[in-house]
Simulated assay, not measured.
Amino acid sequence: MSRFPSSVYAARLQAAAAGARAAGLAGLVISPGYDLRYLTGSAAQTFERLTALVIPADGAPSVVTPRLELASLRESAIGELGLTVADWVDGEDPYALVEAALGGAPAAAGVTDAMPALHLLPLADRLGVLPVLATDVMRWLRMVKDTAEIDALRAAGAAIDRVHARVPEFLVPGRTEAQVAADIDAAIVAEGHTAAAFIIVGSGPHGADPHHEHSDRVLQAGDIVVVDIGGPVPPGYNSDCTRTYSLGEPEPEVAQQYRVLQDAQRAAVNAVRPGVSAEAVDDAARSVLAEAGLAEYFVHRTGHGIGLSVHEEPYIVAGNALPLQAGMAFSVEPGIYFPGAWGARIEDIVIVTDDGVEPLNNRPHELVVVPV
Rank of each mutant, 00 (worst) to 15 (best):
A114P: 04
M115W: 09
A117Y: 06
L118W: 15
H119K: 08
L120F: 15
L120D: 07
P122C: 06
L123I: 10
D125R: 14
R126Y: 11
L127W: 01
L130W: 07
V132C: 13
V132F: 11
L133R: 10
A134R: 05
M138Y: 01
M138D: 02
W140G: 14
R142E: 13
V144P: 08
D146S: 09
T147K: 15
A152E: 04
R154E: 15
A156E: 02
V163H: 04
A165Y: 02
A165H: 11
R166Q: 14
R166M: 08
F170Q: 04
G174R: 05
G174T: 05
R175F: 02
E177I: 05
A178Y: 01
Q179R: 13
D183S: 10
I184F: 00
D185K: 02
I188A: 01
A190N: 01
G192W: 12
F198K: 01
I199A: 02
G202V: 05
S203Y: 03
A208L: 09
D209A: 12
H211L: 12
E213P: 00
V218K: 09
L219E: 06
Q220L: 08
I224V: 13
I224M: 01
V225T: 10
V226H: 04
V226E: 06
I229S: 00
I229E: 00
P232T: 07
P234W: 02
